[in-house]
Amino acid sequence: MQDLAQLQTIYTATVIVLAAIGLYCIITKRELLKIVIGIEILTSAVNLNIMVMGLSDSGVDALAQSMTVFSMTIGACVAAVALALVVDVFRHYRTTDVRKLRRLKW
């Protein structure tokens, strides 16, 4: 029981660190691909949090496992659309630098 609480604390800390890295990456990076990578890190943080929440003495709850698998699939779809858009941005601007695509108001 003591081990479980310890494990949960460690994993929760990992989740918070991962989420912070992901958000930092999305906010500060100027490169579109790095923004996409930031989104992926944030997705992993949330997926890990679902697993942490399903943690019990007898392993991870089956519901949490199935939810995480679905969430990973959705994350892959979002990444695919995002990367396709990055390719289109590159075709228009010949760069993937966010500062160059300021024709809209951010």
């Binding site: 923004i35 949330v46 659309v81 858009l85 941005v89 228009h92 695509l101 024709r103």
Partner: peptide
């Protein structure tokens, strides 16, 4: 260009929103 740029901006913001609510 407008569609691609707005689409990317929408994707980034909306994905962060969905992930926050999933959290």
């Amino acid at each position: 260009w407008e569609a691609v740029e707005a689409g990317f901006k929408y994707l980034v913001m909306s994905t962060i929103g969905s992930l926050v609510s999933l959290y």
